[in-house]
C-alpha cells in the first residue's frame, strides 16, 4: 500500500489548521471541521466527475470511487468545495471571507505535499534550482513548489485586506486561479490542463471583488 497521497492531504489539512490559528478573526464555529467536510465533499464529487468523464459507470463500479489516484476532476472538486462551504454558511456568507486565507494556506500545503509523493517536477528547465528525477539527468521546474509559494504569498496578502463583503473571498479565488494559470504551462500534461476553468475562476474572483466594492459603495452612499 502507498500512502503518499494521504500524507499530501494531511499536509494540506495541517497547513489549513495553522492558517486558522494565524488568522482567527471572525471565524465561524467549527471552522476546521467545515474545511475538512468541504475537502472530502470536493474530493468525492471530483472523483465521481472524473469517473464519468473516463466512461466508468459509478453505479456498476462503486468501489472505484475510492481509487482517488485514478483521477479527480479538479474544477468540479473546487466548485463542490466552494458550494459546500457556501451552503454550510448560508446564513452568514461573510464567514467565507474569514476562512479565505486559511483555505489558500491549506492549498499551499497540499501543493507542497508533492514532496511526499515525489511529484513536484514539471517541464524541463536549465534554471539553477531545477531538479532532476532520481536516475535522470534531465533537470525540471519544481512547479508544485512554485505554486505553493505563490499561494502562501497570496494567503498573506488576502489576510491583510479589509473586511469589505466578498473582498477576501474574491481575492482568494483570484489568487488560487492565478497560481494555477501561472504554473500550468510548466506542468507536464496529456491534454493541456483545465485552463478554461482556471480562467473562469479568475473572472469569478474579479467579479466577486467588484460586487463587494459596489455593495460597499452603495451602503456607504447616504440616501
Amino acid at each position: 500500500m502507498e500512502f503518499t497521497l494521504l500524507f499530501a492531504a494531511l499536509t494540506g489539512a495541517a497547513a489549513a489548521w495553522l492558517g486558522l490559528r494565524i488568522w482567527p478573526d471572525r471565524l465561524p464555529e467549527r471552522a476546521f471541521d467545515q474545511l475538512i467536510g468541504a475537502s472530502v465533499t470536493g474530493l468525492a464529487v471530483g472523483r465521481l466527475a472524473a469517473m464519468v468523464d473516463q466512461g466508468i459507470n459509478p453505479l456498476t463500479n462503486p468501489g472505484e470511487l475510492l481509487i482517488v489516484r485514478g483521477g479527480v476532476a479538479t474544477p468540479i472538486a473546487a466548485l463542490s468545495f466552494i458550494l459546500f462551504l457556501g451552503w454550510t454558511n448560508r446564513r452568514q456568507l461573510s464567514n467565507l471571507d474569514a476562512l479565505s486565507p486559511s483555505i489558500l494556506l491549506g492549498l499551499a500545503g497540499w501543493q507542497a505535499g508533492c514532496l511526499w509523493r515525489g511529484a513536484c517536477l514539471g517541464t524541463a528547465s536549465d534554471l539553477p534550482w531545477a531538479v532532476a528525477q532520481p536516475g535522470s539527468d534531465i533537470t525540471r521546474h519544481p512547479v508544485e513548489i512554485y505554486a505553493a509559494l505563490l499561494l502562501v504569498v497570496g494567503a498573506i496578502l488576502v489576510s491583510r485586506l479589509g473586511w469589505r463583503p466578498w473582498l477576501r473571498s474574491g481575492a482568494a479565488l483570484t489568487v488560487a486561479s492565478l497560481a494555477r494559470l501561472a504554473t500550468e504551462p510548466m506542468r507536464p500534461s496529456l491534454d493541456g490542463g483545465p485552463v478554461g476553468w482556471y480562467l473562469a475562476g479568475l473572472l469569478a474572483g474579479i467579479g466577486l471583488i467588484a460586487l463587494g466594492l459596489l455593495r460597499h459603495r452603495q451602503s456607504a452612499t447616504p440616501t
Binding site: R69, G70, G71, A119, L121, G122, T123, A124, Q133, S136, I138, R140, R187, P188, S189, L190
Partner: peptide, 11 residues
Amino acid sequence: DERTLALNIDE
C-alpha cells in the same frame, strides 16, 4: 496518474 504518465513520457 496523469501527471506521472505525462512526466515519464516527456522524459
